[in-house]
Simulated assay, not measured.
Amino acid sequence: MKTEFASIRWRERDVSIEYIRIAPERTHAPHIVFLHEGLGSVAMWKDFPQQFCDAGGYRGLVFSRPAYGQSTPRDEDERWDVDFMHRQAHEVLPAFFHAIDLHEKPWLFGHSDGGSIALLYAARFPHAVAGIVVLAPHLFVEDVTVANIEEARKAYETTDLPQRLGKYHDSADSAFWGWNRIWLHPPFRQWNIEAELDAIQCPVLAMQGIDDEYGTLEQIRGIARRVPQTQLVEIRDCGHSPHRDQPENVIVAALNFIEQNRSLQP
């Protein structure tokens, strides 16, 4: 797969977005857009998007948000605010889709922060999405989430975590501190997107590990209470990254969901 770059204008500067296309020759197949976690990137997904698209005969699009992977890093003095995921969903994603001429309705496949961004995009642009699959998304901030993000900060400062993250990001500091500082910023404890989910009209599959160290099952159960067309999958022996802990279960559930809902769409 060839790495490509798209240029968008965001936060009053030009930003380069790293992305790869999977099987673009499958022109009539569903188009799956993968949205990575809070410390993720194109490389951090490893081969899961390829496996998933090959299993379903789909096309795929995998990209790194600004500050991650090979996309433009944060400026040293750039601090994200409480609305950072809203800005990704409402500003970056539409600009990126426009830059690469993606005008069809994609299926969004988001993990963790990427899952929250997928939900926010589907709520703001309800007619622009065929459906969404979210793994361990965040709807609100829980004590367990903050506690483990605090532990991640300590690990970043005292272990080889920067070197390990450096395998997946041109600037590990850009990726880590952008994510870590806002999640530990006291006003962020009030962040909550539950009410916004009422606007979602597309089908939703929400999956989460029962042993998720970054959130309780109330995160996905909250989606089902707000969005009646939601299917829930709670996965045993699984932590915060279902696609790494239980990839076969995730692939089977997501493929069944997409195929069932494709047959219902015009």
Rank of each mutant, 00 (worst) to 15 (best):
T3S: 14
I8P: 04
R9E: 13
W10P: 14
E12I: 07
V15M: 09
E18L: 07
E18K: 03
Y19Q: 04
I22K: 05
A23Q: 02
A23C: 05
E25N: 08
R26Q: 04
T27Y: 10
H28R: 11
A29M: 05
I32F: 00
L35I: 12
G40L: 03
K46I: 05
D47M: 07
F48K: 02
F52C: 04
C53L: 07
A55I: 01
G56K: 04
R59K: 04
V62Y: 04
A67D: 05
G69P: 06
G69K: 02
G69S: 04
S71F: 03
T72G: 02
P73L: 02
R79Y: 08
W80M: 05
M85V: 00
H86P: 00
H86E: 09
R87N: 04
Q88N: 10
H90F: 12
V92T: 01
A95K: 10
F97K: 02
D101M: 06
E104L: 05
P106M: 01
H111D: 00
D113L: 05
I117H: 01
A118H: 01
L119E: 08
L120N: 05
L120C: 10
A122H: 01
A123K: 02
A123Y: 00
R124Q: 13
F125Q: 09
A128Y: 08
A128M: 11
A128F: 09
G131H: 07
A136Y: 02
A136E: 01
V141D: 07
V144Q: 12
A147Y: 06
I149H: 12
E151I: 12
A152V: 11
R153H: 14
E157T: 07
R164N: 12
Y168N: 11
H169K: 09
H169F: 09
S171V: 07
S174C: 11
A175D: 05
W183R: 14
H185R: 13
W191L: 07
I193W: 01
A195F: 10
C202G: 13
V204W: 00
L205C: 03
L205V: 00
M207V: 06
D212C: 06
A224K: 13
R226G: 00
T230S: 14
H243T: 03
E248M: 06
V250W: 02
V250T: 06
V252C: 13
I258V: 12
R262W: 05
